[in-house]
Simulated scan of single mutants.
Amino acid sequence: MSDYEVRPATLRDAKAVAEIHALSVKAAYEGILPEEELRALAPATREAKWREAIEYSEPQVHVVVHGSEIVGFVGFDRSRDPKTPPTTGEIWAIYVKPEHWGKGAGVALWDAAREGLEDEGCTTVTIWVPIRNDRAMRFHELAGFKREMKTAKTTAIGTVRIEEIRLKRNVA
């Protein structure tokens, strides 16, 4: 039994989601992005984005709670990639506070997203992961995702360009 509970996010959760997003990205991208780019990832720049996502369910956002504290979140919906069938879902974002990495919070979020995508009629799910983010790559591969080798692309984060690859698996 997990110490983590997942529930749909409410508007009151937007600030916590933004803080977790900024904190987790800083930890996950250390050594991938330069220090000045990491410092620019402030929660204030993300709160409005997450408030809007929660309000309009685009993407659907769920949070994972440990005790009374929100320690992570997942955003999921239909794939944003061009030419994908409507049965393809996408994990738009999945982040957990670093002190909860490897303790089951991410798995609880993934399970909730998988169930939500299945309810939406999705049969496959994708996620874009930076190639150099070994921890994220390992997490998703352990969850059954496989790399789609021909999908590698370069994405700008601030002034830095990083290589990403799409991973894919069946929802069920």
Rank of each mutant, 00 (worst) to 15 (best):
A156K: 13
E58D: 13
M1A: 15
E30C: 04
F145N: 00
V61A: 08
L117C: 05
E52S: 07
E36T: 13
V107Y: 00
I127T: 07
T87L: 01
W110N: 00
A28R: 12
K146L: 09
P98M: 06
W92G: 05
A93H: 04
T151R: 05
V96Q: 03
K26R: 15
P130E: 11
E99L: 12
R135W: 14
G102T: 03
A14G: 11
P130N: 04
A22G: 06
W128A: 14
E118W: 13
E118N: 12
K15W: 11
R161Y: 04
A48H: 12
E19A: 14
Q60R: 15
A53F: 13
S24K: 09
G106H: 02
A152G: 06
I131E: 15
V125Y: 02
G67R: 12
A53N: 13
P85V: 07
A14M: 06
E19M: 10
R135G: 07
D81F: 04
I54E: 11
S68M: 07
I131N: 08
T87Y: 06
Y4L: 02
E47D: 02
A28D: 03
V96R: 02
A16H: 14
R7A: 12
G144Y: 01
L23F: 03
I70T: 15
V160Q: 11
T159Y: 05
W50Y: 08
D134F: 14
K150R: 12
G104H: 03
P59F: 08
R7Y: 12
E35A: 09
T45E: 11
A9V: 03
T155W: 13
E37K: 04
L41V: 06
H62T: 00
V171T: 03
F139T: 00
D119L: 08
V64A: 07
A93S: 12
T124V: 12
A105M: 07
L117I: 02
T84L: 05
S68L: 11
M1P: 14
R135Q: 11
R51K: 14
K146M: 10
E164F: 06
G72K: 01
R114V: 09
A28W: 06
G102Q: 04
T124F: 03
E99D: 12
K153W: 04
V25C: 13
G106M: 00
A93T: 05
A16V: 05
D111T: 00
N170C: 01
P86S: 03
L38H: 09
R135T: 09
D134G: 14
L23V: 15
E19Q: 14
R138T: 08
V65M: 08
I165N: 04
D3Q: 11
W128Q: 10
L38D: 05
R138D: 14
Y56L: 07
K26Y: 02
P34R: 10
R7N: 07
K49A: 10
L38C: 07
R78N: 09
P82G: 03
V65H: 12
G75E: 05
A113E: 01
R78V: 08
